[in-house]
Design a protein around this nucleic acid. Structure first.
Lengths: 235, 235, 235, 235
DNA sequence: AATGAATGAGTCTTCATTCAT
DNA sequence: GATGAATGAAGACTCATTCAT
């Protein structure tokens, strides 16, 4: 009747299917307002089946947070570390690409869960701090420091700069899953990808040293094909 | 037994005390995980009394969101609109002062409630969009446009710039009430006030036109008192 | 409408009413098969009210066991200790009266709960061992020892004798709440009170020393009005 | 792979293995608190297999009760009926041996199940009354009556005497599977076999007629080998 | 025959809300 | 107005039973 391996395949796919269903519901309603049966329904199984794979709603939630964002973060960190060209390039290209990927991925929802539920799940807070915040911030901090050492950037405060860079992009993810998901609202944020690129370009210009600025200006006024895919900003 | 005036005074103060208790609990646990009796306890009254003032937990929540942030926003908007000096000054002084006030006020918590609960309370979403987001963004957008018209800023995309300016400051408020409230976590963000000022300084530099940059440089190299209270950044 | 103190009185009576309802249900169905709502219904309240007084079904159960039998035991122990006449008299009169009272009291049900649920509630086991078994057995053991010392009884093993005395009476309580409660069954045990007295008389005769036996025989053959309220046994 | 004979043998042994597993679990936790999967695990099979042999948990339980004690009872009854010597001998030897065997057998657990679950399974109650209680009591009642007729015993009430004889021995079985199984408890009952013998000896002495008592005394004072294996009691 | 994944009825427990005092 | 005892709808979780493999 049914493909003989289907049952087996379904069994192996269950945990992932449940995690995805749970993520979508948790990010929509919040942990406390999500009914575990609704998670099961979204995953196409019955209430009882959910409990075959995760011993409680809380464990399910923790699994969602632990398993959803890590890969995305690790990949972005790797790309930044392996980047060979100038730091400015890394900032407006690699970092932008990374965050566009994050923004489009289901993992973007985890930021909302983190903000929302952290205080109720202290052990998740340390997981998130160590596995997401720390590696991400460190990678960007390294980038900024390399820029300063190379003379591309001014001698700014590194920590604050990292936050100027990433906080808007995280906010973008939060926005996507809160106001952005309320279709009744007139949206002020129409082009998230464009925003990411322009934000990074703006910060880059804010960071650049006199020398780097002069160089950029020269390139722009010249026929330089570089322009770092910068959104066209004139001034 | 009790001073009748005191009782009267307490009675009149009740709604505000209840709102404050509710805000603190809702921001800590989230709406669904907050027990209405706990709100009453924090306000020093009994469960039943709460219902004399707010007909339901949901109504209480909506009152919290509606009444907590509005004054702060209106005041900031007013200051920005009345500012007489250069736009750059408004950005790094008035706007910074405004956000420091917001960050320190109980209203900072409302951003977390908005992110967290918006999808569950669609009518709050429109309230928030119209009463908080729109006026705030409009005021800053006007600032940016005035800067462009005055030749202080490059001809950037206004909307995206507004987001580059405000999103990190909103994130700061969210942070304060989520990870920031988990005392077990090693904090990367140590000086929120300093961050606000440096972020705005960074963005300002990113926005400034060549002419404005040259002027700034002249001022710095000259005897200018650097009246903008700019954090010292060299480059 | 209602007696103004009724509400208060009911509140104070609740715990006891709930304990009684719980005892009757637990002894009927067993702990696991008893639904907590059924306890509430028997006590004439709603499900939720039960939880105002006992935080869980398990706590309710423990309260039932701890509070139901203690008074009965303590009273019996006191009577035995204060007995002034011969040990034989104490055995067939005071002890019999005690156990008739126990048998008729709701506390008789606790023996069944103890047998049934002890292995599932280890802390109840030690409570029961220390608060019920130990004082009861000690009191009877003292009685037996006094009888031996006084020459009324032979030099029997005290512990085993205590068990010969009490085990049938405990079994009687168990019987009352198990087979005895199945009205479909033809009963072999028709007169529990008579059984208690005859059992004690039988054991007494088994215990008595030659001398005491001879004395008893003399009394019986004489006009002695004593006869200790002994059921008439001839032989 | 596996010896086909072994598989065959195991298949035939299954029902018995399942009954044993079920008995051990039911007596430990009670019927309602026992999970049928745990029965299967103890029998070394899977949940599904259990249902190939017994259509429901309740049927399994009934089978346990029906099949576990009957043989033990029948055997004891037969021995008592076939006994040729004096009734006193039968009482302290055959009956004691019988109960030692019962106490040591798995069947001892059935008494606990009977006490515990009887009221929830009325048809078991009648089975137990007719197949266990009735034959057992009848056999012992016959013994007592033979003793009275033979002049060995006084003219006691037969029914009550039967209960004085058997109830402590049943209690012993209950004890073994309730408090006795709680290893944390200091035990007052150290030697069940000795207790059985001494209890029967005590009751015997309580039952004996003057004539029989005198005869016993003579035997003891004479060279009698005290063939009754009476525990040494002096008095 | 044997397995164990899946099901969903059933139960404990919580908590927003009511209302007699 | 203020209280807090009482209610019962709702939700997390369990487990006997089924059935495709």
């Amino acid at each position: 009747m049914v493909d003989p391996t289907l049952r087996q395949r379904r069994k192996e796919a269950r945990p992932q299917e449940l995690l995805e269903a749970a993520l979508s519901l948790f990010v929509e309603k919040g942990f406390a307002a999500s009914r575990s049966e609704e998670v099961a329904v979204r995953a196409g199984v019955s209430k009882g089946t959910l409990y075959l794979y995760y011993p409680s709603k809380e464990d399910l939630f923790k699994a969602v947070v632990r398993q959803t964002l890590s890969a995305e973060i690790a990949e972005g960190v790797r790309v930044l570390e392996e980047h060979q060209g100038s730091v400015s390039e890394a900032l407006v290209q690699d970092l932008a690409d990374w965050w566009v990927r994050v923004y489009e991925s289901p993992g973007s929802a985890v930021f909302k869960l983190a903000i929302t539920e952290m205080r109720n799940f202290p052990d998740l807070a340390s997981f998130y701090a160590e596995e997401v915040v720390l590696p991400g911030c460190t990678a960007i901090a390294n980038l900024v420091m390399r820029g300063i050492e190379a003379g591309e950037f001014r001698a700014v405060d590194v920590n604050n700069t990292v936050h100027s860079i990433v906080l808007p992009m995280i906010m973008l993810c939060l926005h996507k899953h809160s106001i952005g998901a309320c279709t009744t609202i007139e949206q002020t944020m129409q082009e998230p990808h464009a925003f990411i690129r322009q934000h990074l370009a703006l910060v880059l210009r804010g960071l650049q040293s006199e020398a780097a600025l002069a160089r950029s200006a020269a390139e722009v006024s010249g026929a330089s094909s570089v322009s770092l895919k910068l959104p066209k900003i004139e001034g």
